[in-house]
Structures are given as structure tokens and as C-alpha cells.
Amino acid sequence: MWTEEIVAGRPAWRHTPSGVVFRAVSAGTYRMGLSEAELAAVRAIELNGGAEDTLEPFFAGAGDAQPVREVRVEPFLIARHPLTVAQVQHWLPEYEDDYADADSGTARLEDDLDDLLEALPFRLPSEAEWEYAARAGTATVTFRGDGKPGEDQLLDDFGNEQRTAAAENAFGLAAMGSAAEICADVWIPGFAGAPADARPRVGDGPRVVRGGAADLYPWQGCDEWLLLLSATRYEHAQFTAVRPVAPVPPWK
């Protein structure tokens, strides 16, 4: 079922039937949410002329990713990048994608989403796990720091291994923030009362989505780069990508 190998110089676990490559994320504790330091970094970008429009709506909605709290995350495997069209077709052979230019591109699911989630032998990440994976040990607006993320941080096709490897964060994960990735949690504005152990919040209603900057490419000058921030979150409304999670194999 699993093959342990080295991918781009890092340990990886390949799900043999589908070919999906996973990375192991170690247990740890981190500060989840949009911190005051991150807000200050975004404000500095705006004051230095890095914003195309006013960022007041972003600041007004900051409470959706607050209060910042300490979260304990247990080890897990997470896909190196969102599932591609070809990978989704392993479980849904009739799947067609109107958004991707190639089978190696990120699959964006609408009507097929529930069918895929039912067919997958994996689960969705909780949003606490997703943000932990995106931050990869950092506390800045993206894993690259507090500078304005640019279009060079977008990755939407994984047919070029060299480019995929160059885009990885410290956990060996590529394209965190590029596509709108659905999480296991139900959408609840803010983190008041949220668990401290990375469990998803469950209930009725739309799920949480993280990322999505590539979904709006080519950027129209509406500060789409904000979707690359590790803490940006919103509720699922349209198509979404899937980056599955699995338990760490028992031999580890």
C-alpha cells in the first residue's frame, strides 16, 4: 500500500495504488491564527505601496482568523501537493476538469467533490493541520517571510519536478496557498472556543477553505496575494482542491 522513497532529496511515502506522494509532518505546537505581527507586516506592505487597493476589508475581517492560540498537532502524512486531475481519475475514472490545462494540473472539484471524498481512503486535513503544514515552523505571513508574496509563489501544475521541488517549504510541501483547499472543519468565524489539539470543528454548513491565489490567476489587481497568507481562511462556496491526509505508517 505504501512505498517509502526519497523525493527531491527528502523522505516521502507514496501511496502505491494512486501514486500520490505524501510527506510526514512531525508533531509540534504552534501559534495558529492571524497574529498582530502578521497584521503589522501586511500593513507595512500596504504603506510601502505594495497593495493595489485598500486593504481595509482584509483588516476588518481579521477576526475570522483570531484569537491566536496555541495548538498541539500530532504527526500525520499530508499530500505533497493538491491532487492532480490524473490522481483524481484514479478514484473517479470519468472525472473531467474544465479548469486544468493538463492532467498534471491541480484538480478543482465541484459536483464531483462528495464522490471523491467518499472514494478516497484518506481524510481531509483539519484547518489546524493545514496551517501548521503551511507555516512549516515559521510565524510569518508565508513560510518565505513577511514580504509581499508574488506570483512566483503560485504553483498550479506539477508536471515539472524541478519547479515543484523548488516551491517546497521546510516540510517538503508545494503550493500551500495556491489553490483553494478544503478542510475538514465546518466554517465558523473566529477561533473562540476552538480545540487546542488540532481536531476539526464539526457541524452543519459549508467547510473551511484555505488558499486560492492561483484560482484567480492572472491576478486582476485586487490583492489576490492575500490568499497566499498562511492564516487566510474563508468558507467554501464554489470549486475546491483536495490535499488529503493519512496516518503515519506504522513502521515509522
Rank of each mutant, 00 (worst) to 15 (best):
D53S: 07
R14E: 03
W91F: 07
A41D: 13
E131K: 02
V85G: 03
A180F: 03
A37I: 01
G221L: 05
D53N: 11
T84C: 14
L155F: 13
P75C: 04
L120E: 02
Y30D: 05
T164W: 10
A175R: 08
S26Q: 03
A175K: 14
T140M: 14
E181N: 00
P121W: 04
L228R: 12
R199L: 06
L227D: 03
W219F: 11
E181A: 03
L227S: 00
E70Q: 12
M176H: 00
D204F: 13
T84A: 12
W91V: 02
G61F: 15
A134Q: 00
E56P: 07
G190F: 09
E5A: 11
F239E: 08
P195R: 10
E129A: 03
A41Q: 11
A133L: 00
W13R: 03
L226R: 07
D103Q: 09
V21I: 10
R80G: 01
R207M: 01
R23A: 13
A100R: 02
L34M: 01
E131R: 00
P11T: 15
R108C: 05
Q238W: 07
A196V: 11
V42P: 01
E110P: 01
A246I: 06
G137N: 01
T164R: 05
A65Q: 05
A198R: 06
V25E: 02
D114P: 02
M32L: 15
E56Q: 05
V20L: 06
I45V: 05
G190N: 12
Q89N: 09
F171A: 10
K148A: 00
P195A: 04
R14G: 04
A136S: 11
A241G: 07
W130A: 01
L120G: 01
E46F: 07
T54P: 05
E74P: 15
E118T: 11
L120F: 02
F239L: 06
S35K: 10
E36P: 01
G137F: 01
D114A: 14
S178F: 00
V186T: 13
G137V: 00
E52T: 03
D112Q: 13
G211V: 14
P75E: 09
W251N: 11
P244F: 10
D156W: 14
L109A: 09
E56K: 11
P75L: 08
R210A: 07
A170S: 13
G190D: 12
L34H: 01
L227A: 05
A102Y: 07
V209T: 08
E161F: 09
C183T: 12
D111P: 07
V245Y: 06
L117I: 15
R243W: 07
D204A: 15
P75A: 08
D223M: 03
L117D: 04
A65W: 11
E94D: 08
A60M: 09
N160P: 12
A12P: 15
L109F: 14
A44I: 11
F239A: 05
M32T: 00
L77V: 04
D185H: 00
E52V: 00
R69Q: 15
S230C: 10
G211K: 10
P125A: 10
G150K: 09
E36R: 06
L47H: 12
T140Y: 12
L39C: 14
E74Q: 15
D98T: 15
G61R: 11
G145L: 00
A167M: 14
D157N: 04
A119F: 01
W130T: 01
Q220E: 06
G147C: 06
D204N: 09
